[in-house]
């Protein structure tokens, strides 16, 4: 049985401070060639409120997924307007995986995202509008239903409306019923919209 050994001192503090962990030191580490150094820098920058800009700059060039995730977690924790503005910029990226990570990060920033939600939902790019609705999926904010109603009332793009509709089936109340009925008229040739609107209406009326 002594095959299983006691750990001697594997868990200790020596690894803690191999490099300078002050702000300039961390920024330097964020550009290191070693992904693990970059990842740790990204994690440690969570205590530096001025780090958002550098983090996003790195995020755009970052090709190591684990570093990218750490940067996004830190941006979520920083939660300042600079971080949010940079996240919005990334929504326009062609990189699908990055975009989806950014959407997830923004879901966790209700107070910071709320003020810009209106402009995201009326962006000229329908993809950005769809992503904005995706953010609403988990955004813990009381205005979600109102935003969704605005979308199905005003948006002319079928997939933007379809995405909003999916969510309204879950969070919609009697207040959404008229907008849902009108949406069916607007897209009367789209079986999916009819299906999803009917489902939402049924859920709301029978709840």
């Amino acid at each position: 049985m002594p095959i299983i050994k006691q750990v001697d001192s594997e868990i200790n503090d020596t690894e803690k401070r191999l490099n300078a962990r002050d702000f300039p030191g961390l920024l330097e580490q964020l550009e290191s060639n070693d992904p693990s150094a970059r990842r740790w820098a990204a994690r440690d920058l969570a205590t530096h409120s001025e780090a958002a800009k550098a983090l996003v700059q790195r995020l755009k060039r970052e090709d190591d997924k684990s570093v990218g995730e750490a940067i996004l977690t830190t941006l979520t924790k920083l939660a300042d307007p600079v971080a949010v503005a940079c996240l919005v910029e990334c929504l326009r990226s062609e990189d699908v995986a990055l975009r989806n990570e950014v959407i997830e990060a923004m879901k966790n920033l209700p107070n910071e995202v709320a003020p810009i939600m209106g402009s995201l939902l009326t962006d000229t790019d329908p993809d950005v509008r769809i992503f904005a609705v995706n953010i609403l999926e988990s955004l813990r904010h009381p205005q979600v239903e109102t935003w969704l109603m605005e979308v199905i009332k005003n948006d002319t793009h079928v997939n933007v409306c379809a995405t909003a509709l999916d969510l309204l089936g879950e969070v919609g109340t009697l207040a959404s019923l008229d907008a849902l009925q009108n949406l069916k008229l607007k897209f009367s040739d789209q079986p999916y919209i009819i299906f999803a609107a009917d489902l939402a209406i049924k859920r709301i009326s029978e709840a």
């Binding site: 379809a162 509709l165 879950e170 999916y192």
Partner: peptide, 8 residues
């Protein structure tokens, strides 16, 4: 990821 699409 959309429940309604899956159901449809």
């Amino acid at each position: 990821d959309a429940a309604t699409v899956r159901l449809y």
